[in-house]
Design a binder for these strands. Structure first.
Lengths: 147, 147
DNA sequence: AAATATCATTTGAATAGTCAAGTGATAGGG
DNA sequence: CCCTATCACTTGACTATTCAAATGATATTT
Protein backbone atom coordinates (compact mmCIF):
# COMPACT_ATOMS: atom_id res chain seq x y z
CA UNK A 1 0.00 0.00 0.00
CA UNK A 2 0.89 3.70 0.12
CA UNK A 3 2.46 3.96 -3.32
CA UNK A 4 0.99 7.29 -4.25
CA UNK A 5 0.70 7.96 -7.93
CA UNK A 6 2.11 11.08 -9.50
CA UNK A 7 -1.43 12.22 -10.25
CA UNK A 8 -2.49 11.94 -6.64
CA UNK A 9 0.55 13.92 -5.54
CA UNK A 10 -0.21 16.71 -7.99
CA UNK A 11 -3.81 16.66 -6.84
CA UNK A 12 -2.73 17.03 -3.22
CA UNK A 13 -0.51 20.02 -3.99
CA UNK A 14 -3.31 21.70 -5.90
CA UNK A 15 -5.80 21.11 -3.13
CA UNK A 16 -3.52 22.29 -0.37
CA UNK A 17 -2.43 25.36 -2.28
CA UNK A 18 -5.95 26.35 -3.20
CA UNK A 19 -7.10 25.97 0.38
CA UNK A 20 -4.17 27.87 1.83
CA UNK A 21 -4.33 30.69 -0.69
CA UNK A 22 -8.03 31.04 -0.03
CA UNK A 23 -7.40 31.50 3.67
CA UNK A 24 -4.70 34.06 3.03
CA UNK A 25 -6.88 35.82 0.51
CA UNK A 26 -9.81 35.95 2.92
CA UNK A 27 -7.50 37.46 5.46
CA UNK A 28 -6.21 39.98 2.94
CA UNK A 29 -9.69 40.98 1.78
CA UNK A 30 -10.84 41.53 5.34
CA UNK A 31 -9.62 45.12 5.00
CA UNK A 32 -12.29 45.60 2.33
CA UNK A 33 -14.87 43.64 4.29
CA UNK A 34 -15.10 41.02 1.54
CA UNK A 35 -14.43 37.31 1.23
CA UNK A 36 -12.65 35.61 -1.65
CA UNK A 37 -15.88 34.03 -2.89
CA UNK A 38 -17.65 37.38 -2.79
CA UNK A 39 -14.85 39.07 -4.68
CA UNK A 40 -15.00 36.36 -7.32
CA UNK A 41 -18.75 36.78 -7.76
CA UNK A 42 -18.58 40.59 -7.85
CA UNK A 43 -15.86 40.38 -10.51
CA UNK A 44 -17.97 38.16 -12.71
CA UNK A 45 -21.04 40.36 -12.32
CA UNK A 46 -19.02 43.46 -13.11
CA UNK A 47 -17.66 41.81 -16.25
CA UNK A 48 -20.92 40.43 -17.60
CA UNK A 49 -23.71 42.52 -16.08
CA UNK A 50 -26.57 42.59 -16.56
CA UNK A 51 -27.04 38.84 -16.38
CA UNK A 52 -29.35 36.24 -14.89
CA UNK A 53 -28.64 34.03 -11.91
CA UNK A 54 -28.27 30.93 -14.04
CA UNK A 55 -25.73 32.64 -16.27
CA UNK A 56 -23.80 33.77 -13.23
CA UNK A 57 -23.93 30.30 -11.70
CA UNK A 58 -22.39 28.99 -14.90
CA UNK A 59 -19.58 31.59 -14.82
CA UNK A 60 -18.53 30.86 -11.28
CA UNK A 61 -19.27 27.12 -11.56
CA UNK A 62 -21.54 26.97 -8.58
CA UNK A 63 -25.01 25.45 -8.40
CA UNK A 64 -28.17 27.51 -8.73
CA UNK A 65 -28.84 26.99 -5.06
CA UNK A 66 -25.36 28.16 -4.16
CA UNK A 67 -25.66 31.33 -6.21
CA UNK A 68 -29.07 32.04 -4.77
CA UNK A 69 -27.69 32.05 -1.23
CA UNK A 70 -24.57 33.97 -2.18
CA UNK A 71 -26.62 36.69 -3.87
CA UNK A 72 -28.99 36.88 -0.93
CA UNK A 73 -26.01 37.74 1.26
CA UNK A 74 -24.61 40.27 -1.21
CA UNK A 75 -28.02 41.86 -1.59
CA UNK A 76 -28.42 42.13 2.18
CA UNK A 77 -25.10 44.01 2.20
CA UNK A 78 -26.39 46.27 -0.57
CA UNK A 79 -23.66 45.35 -3.04
CA UNK A 80 -25.91 43.99 -5.78
CA UNK A 81 -29.49 44.30 -7.00
CA UNK A 82 -31.86 41.67 -8.31
CA UNK A 83 -34.82 42.71 -10.41
CA UNK A 84 -37.57 40.28 -11.28
CA UNK A 85 -37.90 40.80 -14.98
CA UNK A 86 -40.12 38.44 -16.81
CA UNK A 87 -39.61 35.05 -15.26
CA UNK A 88 -35.94 35.77 -14.70
CA UNK A 89 -34.04 37.80 -12.13
CA UNK A 90 -31.56 40.25 -13.56
CA UNK A 91 -28.49 40.98 -11.50
CA UNK A 92 -26.38 44.10 -11.43
CA UNK A 93 -23.97 45.86 -9.12
CA UNK A 94 -25.20 48.76 -7.03
CA UNK A 95 -23.02 51.85 -6.80
CA UNK A 96 -21.86 50.67 -3.43
CA UNK A 97 -20.93 47.30 -4.95
CA UNK A 98 -19.05 48.90 -7.79
CA UNK A 99 -17.14 51.18 -5.46
CA UNK A 100 -16.20 48.32 -3.19
CA UNK A 101 -15.01 46.22 -6.09
CA UNK A 102 -13.00 49.11 -7.53
CA UNK A 103 -11.34 49.76 -4.23
CA UNK A 104 -10.25 46.13 -3.87
CA UNK A 105 -9.57 45.22 -7.48
CA UNK A 106 -5.96 46.18 -8.02
CA UNK A 107 -4.73 45.13 -4.62
CA UNK A 108 -6.43 41.77 -4.84
CA UNK A 109 -5.07 40.99 -8.31
CA UNK A 110 -1.63 41.97 -7.14
CA UNK A 111 -2.10 39.79 -4.10
CA UNK A 112 -3.13 36.80 -6.19
CA UNK A 113 -0.21 37.29 -8.52
CA UNK A 114 2.24 37.42 -5.67
CA UNK A 115 1.76 33.70 -5.02
CA UNK A 116 3.34 32.99 -8.40
CA UNK A 117 5.62 35.98 -8.80
CA UNK A 118 7.41 35.09 -5.60
CA UNK A 119 8.56 31.70 -6.75
CA UNK A 120 8.21 31.31 -10.51
CA UNK A 121 9.85 33.04 -13.46
CA UNK A 122 7.80 34.57 -16.24
CA UNK A 123 8.46 31.52 -18.41
CA UNK A 124 7.42 29.14 -15.67
CA UNK A 125 4.23 31.05 -15.07
CA UNK A 126 3.33 30.79 -18.72
CA UNK A 127 4.02 27.08 -18.56
CA UNK A 128 1.89 26.65 -15.46
CA UNK A 129 -0.95 28.63 -16.98
CA UNK A 130 -0.94 26.58 -20.12
CA UNK A 131 -0.80 23.26 -18.25
CA UNK A 132 -3.56 24.25 -15.85
CA UNK A 133 -5.74 25.54 -18.66
CA UNK A 134 -5.65 22.15 -20.26
CA UNK A 135 -6.24 20.31 -17.02
CA UNK A 136 -9.09 22.60 -16.07
CA UNK A 137 -10.80 22.34 -19.45
CA UNK A 138 -10.45 18.60 -19.35
CA UNK A 139 -12.18 18.48 -15.97
CA UNK A 140 -14.94 20.75 -17.22
CA UNK A 141 -15.70 18.27 -19.96
CA UNK A 142 -16.05 15.39 -17.56
CA UNK A 143 -19.43 16.76 -16.66
CA UNK A 144 -21.41 15.41 -13.79
CA UNK A 145 -24.27 13.15 -14.97
CA UNK A 146 -26.98 15.81 -15.07
CA UNK A 147 -25.63 19.28 -14.41
CA UNK B 1 -10.14 48.23 -15.71
CA UNK B 2 -10.41 44.51 -16.39
CA UNK B 3 -6.82 43.88 -17.34
CA UNK B 4 -6.38 40.61 -15.53
CA UNK B 5 -2.87 39.71 -14.56
CA UNK B 6 -1.34 36.40 -15.48
CA UNK B 7 -1.27 35.47 -11.82
CA UNK B 8 -4.97 36.06 -11.42
CA UNK B 9 -5.70 33.94 -14.47
CA UNK B 10 -3.63 31.06 -13.13
CA UNK B 11 -5.35 31.46 -9.81
CA UNK B 12 -8.76 31.24 -11.45
CA UNK B 13 -7.86 28.06 -13.30
CA UNK B 14 -6.58 26.47 -10.12
CA UNK B 15 -9.68 27.43 -8.19
CA UNK B 16 -12.09 26.24 -10.84
CA UNK B 17 -10.26 23.00 -11.36
CA UNK B 18 -10.05 22.21 -7.68
CA UNK B 19 -13.73 22.91 -7.21
CA UNK B 20 -14.79 20.87 -10.22
CA UNK B 21 -12.53 17.93 -9.42
CA UNK B 22 -13.86 17.90 -5.89
CA UNK B 23 -17.40 17.61 -7.12
CA UNK B 24 -16.50 14.82 -9.50
CA UNK B 25 -14.52 13.09 -6.80
CA UNK B 26 -17.42 13.31 -4.33
CA UNK B 27 -19.63 11.81 -6.95
CA UNK B 28 -17.11 9.05 -7.62
CA UNK B 29 -16.64 8.24 -3.94
CA UNK B 30 -20.37 8.00 -3.38
CA UNK B 31 -20.10 4.32 -4.31
CA UNK B 32 -17.96 3.87 -1.19
CA UNK B 33 -20.17 6.12 0.88
CA UNK B 34 -17.32 8.59 1.43
CA UNK B 35 -16.63 12.20 0.59
CA UNK B 36 -13.38 13.59 -0.76
CA UNK B 37 -12.60 15.32 2.53
CA UNK B 38 -13.23 12.13 4.46
CA UNK B 39 -11.02 10.12 2.13
CA UNK B 40 -8.25 12.67 2.58
CA UNK B 41 -8.50 12.50 6.36
CA UNK B 42 -8.65 8.69 6.46
CA UNK B 43 -5.56 8.54 4.21
CA UNK B 44 -3.59 10.77 6.54
CA UNK B 45 -4.67 8.84 9.61
CA UNK B 46 -3.76 5.55 7.98
CA UNK B 47 -0.33 6.90 7.07
CA UNK B 48 0.54 8.43 10.41
CA UNK B 49 -1.59 6.69 13.04
CA UNK B 50 -1.61 6.80 15.94
CA UNK B 51 -1.57 10.58 16.14
CA UNK B 52 -3.24 13.44 17.99
CA UNK B 53 -5.90 15.75 16.63
CA UNK B 54 -3.53 18.68 16.44
CA UNK B 55 -1.01 16.66 14.46
CA UNK B 56 -3.74 15.55 12.09
CA UNK B 57 -5.03 19.09 11.69
CA UNK B 58 -1.52 20.09 10.67
CA UNK B 59 -1.29 17.29 8.09
CA UNK B 60 -4.54 18.14 6.35
CA UNK B 61 -4.10 21.91 6.87
CA UNK B 62 -7.42 22.38 8.57
CA UNK B 63 -8.09 24.18 11.85
CA UNK B 64 -8.44 22.35 15.14
CA UNK B 65 -12.12 23.11 15.14
CA UNK B 66 -12.51 21.72 11.65
CA UNK B 67 -10.76 18.48 12.51
CA UNK B 68 -12.83 18.13 15.67
CA UNK B 69 -16.10 18.21 13.72
CA UNK B 70 -14.78 16.03 10.93
CA UNK B 71 -13.64 13.38 13.40
CA UNK B 72 -16.95 13.54 15.23
CA UNK B 73 -18.68 12.58 11.97
CA UNK B 74 -16.18 9.82 11.20
CA UNK B 75 -16.50 8.49 14.72
CA UNK B 76 -20.27 8.43 14.48
CA UNK B 77 -19.88 6.35 11.32
CA UNK B 78 -17.54 4.02 13.21
CA UNK B 79 -14.57 4.60 10.90
CA UNK B 80 -12.18 5.97 13.51
CA UNK B 81 -11.59 5.87 17.25
CA UNK B 82 -10.53 8.61 19.64
CA UNK B 83 -9.03 7.72 22.98
CA UNK B 84 -8.46 10.35 25.64
CA UNK B 85 -4.92 9.70 26.66
CA UNK B 86 -3.37 12.11 28.99
CA UNK B 87 -4.54 15.56 27.92
CA UNK B 88 -4.51 14.51 24.31
CA UNK B 89 -6.86 12.44 22.16
CA UNK B 90 -5.20 9.71 20.17
CA UNK B 91 -6.78 8.83 16.85
CA UNK B 92 -6.69 5.56 14.98
CA UNK B 93 -8.69 3.77 12.32
CA UNK B 94 -11.16 1.08 13.33
CA UNK B 95 -11.24 -2.15 11.35
CA UNK B 96 -14.27 -0.84 9.53
CA UNK B 97 -12.39 2.34 8.68
CA UNK B 98 -9.39 0.44 7.45
CA UNK B 99 -11.52 -1.81 5.29
CA UNK B 100 -13.40 1.09 3.79
CA UNK B 101 -10.19 2.92 2.98
CA UNK B 102 -8.64 -0.19 1.45
CA UNK B 103 -11.67 -0.74 -0.72
CA UNK B 104 -11.56 2.80 -2.09
CA UNK B 105 -7.83 3.45 -2.17
CA UNK B 106 -6.76 2.18 -5.57
CA UNK B 107 -9.82 3.35 -7.44
CA UNK B 108 -9.63 6.80 -5.95
CA UNK B 109 -5.94 7.27 -6.73
CA UNK B 110 -6.57 6.08 -10.25
CA UNK B 111 -9.48 8.49 -10.47
CA UNK B 112 -7.38 11.42 -9.29
CA UNK B 113 -4.63 10.55 -11.73
CA UNK B 114 -7.05 10.42 -14.62
CA UNK B 115 -7.48 14.20 -14.49
CA UNK B 116 -3.85 14.57 -15.51
CA UNK B 117 -3.29 11.39 -17.50
CA UNK B 118 -6.07 12.35 -19.86
CA UNK B 119 -4.52 15.56 -21.02
CA UNK B 120 -0.83 15.75 -20.07
CA UNK B 121 2.21 13.72 -21.07
CA UNK B 122 4.48 12.19 -18.47
CA UNK B 123 6.94 15.03 -18.95
CA UNK B 124 4.25 17.64 -18.55
CA UNK B 125 2.98 16.02 -15.38
CA UNK B 126 6.47 16.11 -13.90
CA UNK B 127 6.70 19.76 -14.84
CA UNK B 128 3.33 20.54 -13.30
CA UNK B 129 4.20 18.68 -10.12
CA UNK B 130 7.44 20.54 -9.74
CA UNK B 131 5.88 23.94 -10.39
CA UNK B 132 2.99 23.31 -8.02
CA UNK B 133 5.28 22.01 -5.32
CA UNK B 134 7.14 25.29 -5.35
CA UNK B 135 3.99 27.35 -5.43
CA UNK B 136 2.42 25.36 -2.64
CA UNK B 137 5.49 25.51 -0.42
CA UNK B 138 5.73 29.22 -1.00
CA UNK B 139 2.12 29.69 0.10
CA UNK B 140 2.72 27.56 3.18
CA UNK B 141 5.49 29.89 4.25
CA UNK B 142 3.27 32.94 4.00
CA UNK B 143 1.68 31.84 7.24
CA UNK B 144 -1.34 33.54 8.62
CA UNK B 145 -0.49 35.87 11.54
CA UNK B 146 -1.13 33.42 14.37
CA UNK B 147 -1.88 29.92 13.11
C1' DA C 1 -4.25 22.23 48.64
C1' DA C 2 -5.82 26.45 45.88
C1' DA C 3 -4.99 29.49 42.17
C1' DT C 4 -3.23 29.96 37.86
C1' DA C 5 -1.24 28.96 33.54
C1' DT C 6 -0.99 26.14 29.51
C1' DC C 7 -2.20 23.04 26.13
C1' DA C 8 -5.87 20.17 23.51
C1' DT C 9 -10.25 19.87 22.19
C1' DT C 10 -15.09 21.46 21.62
C1' DT C 11 -18.63 24.52 20.42
C1' DG C 12 -21.45 28.68 18.67
C1' DA C 13 -22.15 31.59 14.88
C1' DA C 14 -20.93 32.37 10.34
C1' DT C 15 -19.79 31.62 5.20
C1' DA C 16 -19.91 28.59 1.29
C1' DG C 17 -21.28 25.08 -0.91
C1' DT C 18 -24.08 20.46 -2.37
C1' DC C 19 -28.52 17.96 -3.79
C1' DA C 20 -33.18 17.50 -4.25
C1' DA C 21 -37.73 18.93 -3.51
C1' DG C 22 -40.70 23.01 -3.57
C1' DT C 23 -42.59 27.53 -5.37
C1' DG C 24 -43.74 31.17 -8.88
C1' DA C 25 -44.39 32.90 -13.29
C1' DT C 26 -45.58 32.26 -17.78
C1' DA C 27 -46.74 29.83 -22.06
C1' DG C 28 -49.67 26.54 -24.65
C1' DG C 29 -53.02 23.14 -25.30
C1' DG C 30 -57.51 21.53 -24.68
C1' DC D 1 -60.50 29.79 -18.93
C1' DC D 2 -58.38 26.04 -16.44
C1' DC D 3 -54.48 22.27 -16.62
C1' DT D 4 -50.09 21.28 -17.26
C1' DA D 5 -45.40 21.70 -18.55
C1' DT D 6 -41.34 24.27 -18.10
C1' DC D 7 -38.05 27.34 -16.78
C1' DA D 8 -35.86 30.26 -12.93
C1' DC D 9 -35.26 30.65 -8.54
C1' DT D 10 -35.63 29.37 -3.42
C1' DT D 11 -35.38 26.50 0.48
C1' DG D 12 -34.49 22.54 3.78
C1' DA D 13 -31.20 19.41 5.31
C1' DC D 14 -26.55 18.44 5.06
C1' DT D 15 -21.10 18.62 4.78
C1' DA D 16 -17.13 21.30 5.35
C1' DT D 17 -14.92 24.83 6.80
C1' DT D 18 -13.47 29.33 9.41
C1' DC D 19 -12.67 32.24 13.85
C1' DA D 20 -12.97 32.96 18.48
C1' DA D 21 -14.62 31.97 22.92
C1' DA D 22 -15.47 28.13 26.23
C1' DT D 23 -14.31 23.82 28.46
C1' DG D 24 -11.26 20.10 30.19
C1' DA D 25 -7.15 18.22 31.77
C1' DT D 26 -2.92 18.58 33.68
C1' DA D 27 1.20 21.10 35.49
C1' DT D 28 3.28 24.77 38.19
C1' DT D 29 3.66 28.17 41.69
C1' DT D 30 2.81 29.99 45.84
Amino acid sequence: MQKNTRGSLIWLRLTRFTHQSNLLSNDFLKQFDLTTAQFDVLMQISTYEPLTQSELAEKVTVTQGGISRMLARLEKEGLIERKQEWKTKTISLTNKGREKLDSAFEDQLEFQSSFFDECLSEEEQKMLYSLMSRVQKNSEEKKLPKR
